[in-house]
Design a protein around this nucleic acid. Structure first.
Lengths: 148, 148
DNA sequence: TATTGTTATACTCTATAACTATA
DNA sequence: TATAGTTATAGAGTATAACAATA
């Protein structure tokens, strides 16, 4: 049974905390990414990030990728497995170190990434469209200065 | 064996994406929260958020809390169990609906929350200290306008 | 019929520790 | 000795589906 009124829930000092607003904005943006990108191309924000870094650093070793993404190298293995199983990237033997795997985009991966970039940029433009271009640039700059 | 130079890993168009910078800033801020707050008081950002919302809405039902936090009500159960086991909150029978639990801070919970708020505000001030007060206010406003 | 709290279950993400093959 | 990739395992966090009590 529907009651009388839905008075909104109070949030104490949360709305004044940058950490809280950062988290809320990030969750909202991931939700939009899921609707616009993941639903169409089955690529999560994390996977997109991996593809970007691999594309920008051909031959990158898994350990370097792990460092760049801020996760343990053991956690990279399954991600690389997935991307390789989908023929987006390939593990190649490193010419310098026989322990190491050199990561590269496949031709299919490059095509796919080009399409993904369009979708991601459209998602960004639409979601950040609530802010003027000047405000978007300001936000980027403030966020960039916030992390080390 | 240490090699020659650590050339930083390129990140493609990630640094120009608000979603990416939002995520990085959020992760960095959670890391600082963990160092300054969780290490001292064993309260995560999520638990602190729950306490804030319960404190600001005495008698709140678990379902309302779940809605406010954006998670399923089944996921709230364990969290409330934890906070109750630590004597920070209490489940009380609702006077209006015998299915419902009214959540309240305990006296100990109120003391604890007061101390937590000091720690959290110190963490915020320190972390956001890289930005001027005007910039911090600007960031808060931009983030607030970004989510629905 | 619908909602509240609960349980069981599964899935994702991540960290730790140990192993192997190389360096 | 140290590092690269791998595996196994465990712990959060979250979603889904079902259930009993109550509305």
């Amino acid at each position: 049974m529907a009651e009388t009124e839905d008075s909104p829930v109070a949030r104490g000092l949360l709305p004044r905390l940058i950490g809280y607003q950062l988290r809320r904005a990030q969750v909202a943006m991931f939700r939009d990414f899921a609707r616009r990108v993941t639903a169409a191309e089955d690529i999560t924000p994390a996977l997109f990030g991996m593809l970007q870094v691999i594309a920008a650093n051909p031959g990158l070793a898994q350990s370097r990728l792990a460092e760049a993404m801020g996760v343990e190298r053991s956690a990279i293995v399954k991600v690389v497995d997935q991307l390789e199983a989908r023929d987006l990237i390939a593990r190649q033997p490193s010419p310098r170190d026989r322990r190491s795997h050199s990561l590269h985009l496949t031709a299919a991966g490059q095509d796919r990434l080009a399409r993904l970039e369009e979708l991601v940029l459209a998602h960004e433009a639409e979601f950040a469209g609530r802010l003027s271009p000047e405000e978007q640039a300001q936000l980027l700059s403030l966020l960039d200065r916030l992390h080390d």
